[in-house]
Design a protein around this nucleic acid. Sequence first.
DNA 1: TTGCAAATATGAGGATTACTCATGTTTGTG
DNA 2: CACAAACATGAGTAATCCTCATATTTGCAA
Lengths: 213, 213
Amino acid sequence: MEGTAISGSQDGQIASPRRAPSQQRSRERVERMLAAASALIAEHGSDAMRMGEVAERAGVSIGSLYQFFPDKRAIIWALAERYTAESQACIAASLAQVSDAEGLRRAFSELVDIYYGRFLAEPVMRDIWSGTQADKALRELELADSRANAEFLTAVLKRLRPTADPAALETTALLVWQMGEATMRLAISVGRKEGDDLVAAYKRMALRELVGE
Amino acid sequence: MEGTAISGSQDGQIASPRRAPSQQRSRERVERMLAAASALIAEHGSDAMRMGEVAERAGVSIGSLYQFFPDKRAIIWALAERYTAESQACIAASLAQVSDAEGLRRAFSELVDIYYGRFLAEPVMRDIWSGTQADKALRELELADSRANAEFLTAVLKRLRPTADPAALETTALLVWQMGEATMRLAISVGRKEGDDLVAAYKRMALRELVGE
DNA sequence: TTGCAAATATGAGGATTACTCATGTTTGTG
DNA sequence: CACAAACATGAGTAATCCTCATATTTGCAA
């Protein structure tokens, strides 16, 4: 991933390709750009984020910004990509060691709590995943992320229920995962108490599906 | 609703208010504007819809367009509002007569099929609800719609399970509904076959939650 | 019928903002 | 040290949402 040009354009149309930073100096500048974007999104949302502001806050010119990111979406995409990579590592680690139903129960419950906590605490993640659906590249990233996470879950299910139809397990895992994300989005857009109730209800439903009664 | 000025702005900031069409002539023109917008969204998506094109295709000036819609979002919002009103009427009618578990099973299953069919067949609805999350007014409309639909479901559940905790039933209904929409969105963004499988799996899960084993 | 206020219609132009590109500077390397 | 490739710059371009001053039409009271 390091050294790869930043893409993330939509419509299948590849935006004019951009250089990947190869020197120490430019790598640091790219970091500053991402940090600036992140801060601005946290303050006013990605929609209100202005490219000029990102450049200014990062202490670079607007031209430098576009040297490494083909367009505005690509910056947001790059931030999203980091979040998913982080999450996936955490999820994989958490599910890898599960070997029985009770273990899955505990690991899953904990994962949901962590995810919910991040959604509540991280305004940038929240903003990006909220706007996800409007952007094709982000939608694809999210789908890929869901599939990857569901894959971890599928692996566990196959271990626990070796006789079940593998395709059905995959469908279940993907669905459970996607529903989790939908629940989170709903939960953070209603009051805190109702949100907590919804997440708790989701946990019950999902676990019933994953480990049975 | 008729005679109400078209709003639908976001950020809590009310965009400059617009006149509601009061004469026959202008009501027809507003219809043409909405039809034009709908056609353009069907062709290239709401993001690519240009206000100038809407006006041109409706055979009105750009100024007339803005006479009745405070901004671009308001047009999309107005279309979305029509869809939700239609759907709600259909859903309410379908669930109103349910009186036993088997009836719920049949009605719910049919509703899911209808919804899924509409998602697959209506590009405008699909586009608008895809982009929903990016726009606060639309997000609120969708939440209100979900709540209204969940309310119909809650009413049924209360009838079927009079001893259960009403608050829990409400949470369940809202969650089931929201998960349905999430499933639809996922289903239409993957291949047709996988989409069908996901919807079928959702139906099973939801019914298990709604009417038990 | 006529006079008039309110409603409706118009489109050139203001304002914003994502993005380009010609030009200049820095860095690593033979 | 020369030189190519990487990097940096910001004034300017293009696209598009939306405004507003002005003109026309409609409904209605006198």
